[in-house]
Amino acid sequence: MKFKAFLTENGVSLLEKRFLPALDKMGKICHLFLNRDRVFFLHNLLNGDGVQSIAQFSKEALFDDYRISSQYDDCIAFTVDISLLQRALRSSVSICTEFGNGPTANRLQIKLAKKLTKNSTQRLPFLTFETKGYKSAVIQDVPISSPLSRNQVLELQTALDMAQDLPQTLVQVPDLNQLQNFVDRMRHVGDLLNISISKYGDLHIQISTTLITLGAEFQKLLVIGEQADAPSEDRNLSAQTRAARAVLRGDAQSVQVSVKHFGKSLQCHLAKPDCAFYGIALQGACLTLVFQFFIPGTHRLDKSISMHCRLPVLDQGSS
């Protein structure tokens, strides 16, 4: 089992400034899954109760001179503490910038290694960051779990394949910051959030307890996938009635998720996506939040980077 690659400048800035801060909010520990072409950061894929997040990069988006080999179809997976990864990366970057700017002298190499430590007689697995400066080299070892067995990798691969399905209707989130602000304040009022998404481009979120009902409706959002025209007779109804009628008509789906999970998923805006979409999976299996990234300076989708979250559904809602 071998993995060795050089992080590109772009790769470093993507991870250090955007993705690791976002992923850190999703949970301390994640699976890092590498294959011949792609690198995945995965949260909660093997245990069902938290927010699943899937961030994937083509190897070119982060690395050059990418070399990987393993007995299982050249796939390697292990768990790692994101905050440690972030720290190692950050200090490597500061060393790189400190020591000149020769073409190859200060490249940041990352590789899998087994090393003996003070406290153990066995050799333990590490992800090693090696920075060669002008006169010195700095090596940082980030402890990782033992690489997953062939069966565990297969299990992770299966879970990943299952998590790639997209909902039939996706609506664009109006303003992630504003929505996050709203949800942060809303969480004082209750724990469960009802969400309905319609083919008309309506997003309706609501907390309802015995003492209070608090909700927000966003209309005329951009729709991807199945869409329909909003019936004109619904125009003057209340937001709640409108959402309920759309569900009855089969033009909307409604699910219930935890406010905490919802707030967490919105933290992904730290990765600075160019747009975000919400959708409900078939039969209300989960609430999916899809982020899109553009090629810098354009409005074209950057296919080498993708990220989405799946929020577990607590109740089938009214659908």
Binding site: I212, T213, L214, G215, F218, A239
Partner: peptide
């Protein structure tokens, strides 16, 4: 017009 927040307090 496009978004609305509402609340009903008992």
């Amino acid at each position: 017009l496009e978004s609305c927040i509402y609340a009903e307090i008992r």
